[in-house]
Write a protein that binds this DNA or RNA. Structure first.
Lengths: 89, 89
DNA sequence: CAGATATATACGTTTCAAGCAATATTCAAA
DNA sequence: TTTGAATATTGCTTGAAACGTATATATCTG
């Protein structure tokens, strides 16, 4: 699907997933339950976040425990700074 | 239209407008020319950026000179930090 | 005021990604 | 090796936003 980092973050539900994962790493079903989302959509959103390096996962039994990944955030941070460096006010 | 800051930045052309404005303030037609975009689309994108406080404009004769506005960027920065504070790695 | 220039808005069309339901895959435990 | 639980994938439908064209508004200049 190949999305820009901003496009990945543009979806409110993905924003909420990241906010939730900031509190603690969670499995797919836990995320789905916390956010009242269906499991398939949750998986799909997680895949988008994974491809853009906003999350990574650890296999634990039949579960995949998703964690935040700093790489995606760093990229956004870098973009922000590249613009802010030129800002007057 | 009411968009989240990330949704505003999700459109590649709006990203390019901001990058361009980081070099210097420009009028609508100048932006349209630099980026090979139609004038109406350019106006429309600028309105979206304006509503989200990524740009502001100064009236100069018949022209509107658009500038970057730190407010929009600050908001994104704030969001990033609110997540990074909880990141382990 | 008339004409010209710069910008904004309205409208119809199109495109792309989210949502949902069904199905497939993976892996563990008995 | 069968069963069940957790997760991923596929296909279809739908809605929101981008695009192009045409038109409207505003502001300068003569």
């Amino acid at each position: 699907m190949v999305m820009t980092p901003f496009k990945v973050l543009a979806e409110p539900k993905r924003e909420r997933i990241l906010k939730l994962l900031a509190t603690k790493p969670l499995s797919v079903n836990e995320i789905a339950e916390f956010l009242n989302m269906g499991q398939p959509q949750t998986s799909k959103h997680l895949k988008v976040l994974l491809d853009a390096n906003f999350v990574w996962y650890e296999v634990k039994a039949q579960n995949r425990i998703y964690h935040l990944d700093h790489q995606g955030f760093d990229e956004v941070d870098k973009w922000l700074r590249s613009i802010k460096n030129f800002m007057v006010t």
